[in-house]
Design a protein around this nucleic acid. Structure first.
Lengths: 343, 343
DNA sequence: TCACCTTATTTAACCGGTTAACTAGATATC
DNA sequence: GATATCTAGTTAACCGGTTAAATAAGGTGA
């Protein structure tokens, strides 16, 4: 069995103590230039690779960041499976992690205890919460001594953690205004229950605002509640048709939902955008290529992931770092799922 | 600063040595029932959580499995961002990991050295390669003493590692046969270059076989090469139109490509399936909901991830485990992107 | 010349577990 | 009754790093 090259091997080879090697490795300014060179030489010659496990143990710092994703039914939320949001976010996050020597651990979390234990057992240095978790979890997290970033979370817990979100209300507003400007006056809003998700609530506020500006009474429109996945969008699409009400415009809380809705409408002979215009939200990678290409509210998810990583790493390495609350911009991207109202 | 509860605290509390606690924790049959109870009681009372970092160091086993994803341009492959394949796989993989007390680390890999060092520095217990890597990487991996699972890899390296793949040739055959049975005789095959990807090559073999069975000379058809992402599919869609040749059927190497192709066709006034029938490959979560819903070759990606996890964990925990080579089934799922050839 | 800093380096304890080797007492074997 | 084997523990070294404290050598100032 091939033995691992340890710091002591390097020490022996270069004729110094292991402490000196460690100092060289950590850039502690205590070592003479020649010794340093000898050590670095030995490291190269022996192809020494530090063992992060040992470093973690003694420094109590793992250089690992955790990405927490809600579990539903014991499995990563169905959303994870179908929503590019997660992968785009993780791509950005991973990039920053890698560039700074951190690794990322992904885990589904079912209850607060699990999460806390997970952090403890792995000595995680930081955490990002990707998705909506029960309140008790945030409560538990307060007692954790590591930086945490909440993504897309509103409410009381913002105070206690770093947070990144987007201009959700503006997004809802822009989406709706786009439709009113195209002449639509019967506009439905589709999304998960606002009580569950403040993000939806924010977007809904924007929706209401745009309706008001266009002098459209709220009672001419309707809100449809559903889960966040495509299947749910499909079902809500059918429900809209069965509702008896006629809508010429739909504001969807996500592209994922929009795709499901469009699928249901088209299956029932309703054409998008000829009969119904629909605006999505997120501008996922695939939204440009579905048919019709989605008009949607763009957010830079990749960058969101990068910022999350930066905030965490900054907080870890720079103890004077302040709590961060970032609100990222949104913009309307016009494609083919919306058009001027036909008389 | 709150101190961590260690095994020695538990030992002191229950009046035994730390070794005894360790034995209890590891189920070593050396401890009397009463002592065991006392220890377990102390663990509960003190809310002791083992430190996996320390365990990793002494056992040289981290309980962490690595998921390696190719980097392109320093960032997780663009495919990762848009292809549900990855998330579905990871969902399955994560599930098995979690149930067995493993965590998963995700990292983009640029070159073989990185990968090897990564494994060393984190003491990873096992690895899954998700995507296509340069040959030199597999070569390097041979020297690693941990179980590895290759996903969708053909060729010489199969011998040295566990592998999971699907019946690719059959898939290509079924997709093509479906089109010939619908009366199509001008059928294009679209996918990444076969030289790069043996998976594509396999599927192409199936395609050829089906054409032959239908007495369609190969030269009436064409192969189009592209990358694996949607944008690439879109471009190839336009290229097909510009090629001057007329195809009524397209076999696409993936749903991702198919969506891009359809997008391009529709933008140019070509209707799917009225003018062109197209068969995808993978049956991703969203393929049911795009318009038209994709006829495609289904594979169970979630299960693929689960099997990958099982193979790794089995190999880690059971030293007598043999090398595994799994070929998973495929089946045609008929939806709306294909129809009988119109005269 | 002596006391006092600096600087470069070593020593050794520590992080929180595991585990081989040892021990003491009880039980079995001949 | 002497010896071997089991059982239920303990001791202490070890995993591979870090780091506070000790040390040795050289340089300064009075």
């Amino acid at each position: 069995m091939k033995q691992r090259i340890t710091i002591r091997d390097v020490a022996k080879y270069s004729g110094v103590s292991s402490a000196t090697v460690s100092y060289v490795l950590n850039g502690v300014d205590k070592v003479s230039t020649e010794t340093k060179e000898r050590v670095l030489d030995a490291i190269k010659k022996l192809n020494y690779q530090p063992d992060f496990t040992a470093i973690s143990l003694s420094k109590k710092k793992s250089s690992i960041l955790g990405v927490m994703i809600p579990l539903i039914g014991g499995s990563l939320s169905p959303l994870f499976k179908e929503d590019h949001y997660y992968t785009e976010f993780i791509s950005g996050f991973e990039h920053v992690c890698r560039e700074n020597g951190y690794d990322l651990l992904i885990s589904g979390i079912e209850n607060p205890e699990d999460c806390k234990n997970w952090v403890k057992k792995r000595n995680l240095d930081g955490l990002v919460f990707l998705g909506l978790f029960p309140k008790s979890l945030y409560e538990e997290m307060k007692t954790l001594q590591i930086p945490i970033v909440l993504i897309d979370i509103y409410g009381e817990y913002e105070k206690h953690f770093n947070s990144i979100k987007i201009a959700d209300e503006l997004g809802g507003y822009l989406a709706t205004k786009h439709l009113t400007e195209l002449g639509h006056r019967q506009i439905a809003f589709v999304g998960p229950p606002q009580k569950q998700s403040p993000v939806v609530s924010e977007r809904y506020q924007g929706y209401k605002k745009a309706l008001k500006e266009a002098n459209i009474p709220l009672d001419k429109c309707s809100t449809f509640e559903c889960d966040g996945n495509m299947e749910s969008g499909y079902q809500i699409g059918e429900k809209i048709l069965q509702s008896g009400k006629v809508f010429t415009g739909i504001v969807s809380n996500s592209d994922i939902l929009a795709v499901g809705i469009i699928s249901a409408l088209q299956k029932n002979g309703i054409k998008v955008p000829e009969n119904v215009s629909i605006v999505g939200f997120d501008d996922l990678a695939f939204s440009k290529y579905v048919s019709p290409a989605l008009t949607t509210i763009n957010q830079d998810i990749l960058q969101k992931g990068e910022i999350a990583g930066q905030i965490l790493i900054d907080a870890i390495e720079n103890s004077s770092a302040k709590m961060e609350h970032v609100t990222m911009p949104v913009k309307l991207v016009r494609r083919d799922s919306t058009e001027t109202l036909r008389k």
